[in-house]
Design a protein around this nucleic acid. Structure first.
Length: 165
DNA sequence: AAAATATGCAACCGCCACTGC
DNA sequence: CGCAGTGGCGGTTGCATATTT
């Protein structure tokens, strides 16, 4: 059995994953197996969900999205995946959790640089989030039918549209 | 032009929840 | 009920590229 490949994906691998996804759907284990074990199921899933899925919106984040994300983070905490699923544009294209997470981090970094005096205040704001109970379980997932399935600790799931108002 | 530093993106890692046995 | 396998997630890290010195 070949050893697990690491690092960046080639165009050939991407194409293969896309083809296999058509046949196997979200059976990542099956897709990984069909790739002769070169990548494991977690790598395959990550690659597809974050980059290859045709419904991904690859445009830059708008000001509205940035505002919504900042607001969302204050209220719900770092639930990037939930935010990403709700952040669909008019054409139905969505953001990925990775995009949201990276965007938030770099935005936060920029702001930290701009106002180096205020990191403590920012942290305090995070601690005051009413519905945030820490990392564990503070997210939701989807069942096989794609329905949103709360993991138990989310007290409220606001529609992202409301955040934009 | 070269070196140093900053920035952004993508992949890795470990944990948690769900499911089936 | 307990366990193993799998999927999903957020945090962290590393690399490539851009910018600054």
């Amino acid at each position: 059995m070949p050893s697990l490949k690491k690092g960046h994906w080639s165009a050939t691998e991407d194409k293969l994953v896309l083809e296999l996804h058509l046949r196997h759907g979200s059976d990542w284990k099956g897709i990984a197996a069909a790739m002769n074990g070169a990548r494991d199921h977690k790598q395959v899933r990550e690659r597809y969900v974050n980059h290859l899925d045709p419904s991904i919106n690859h445009d830059r984040f708008s000001i509205e999205e940035e505002r919504a994300l900042v607001k969302w983070n204050k209220i719900e905490g770092p639930q990037w995946a939930v935010f990403a699923r709700r952040m669909r544009n008019g054409d139905g294209f969505r953001r990925t959790a990775l995009q949201v997470k990276n965007f938030f981090h770099r935005t936060a970094c920029r702001k930290n640089k701009r106002q180096k005096d205020a990191p403590m205040e920012q942290q305090a704001a995070v601690d005051e989030r009413p519905n945030y109970e820490g990392r564990s379980g503070a997210s939701s997932t989807q069942n096989v039918r794609g329905e949103e399935k709360p993991r138990g600790r989310i007290k409220s799931l606001m529609n992202i549209r409301n955040l934009l108002n």
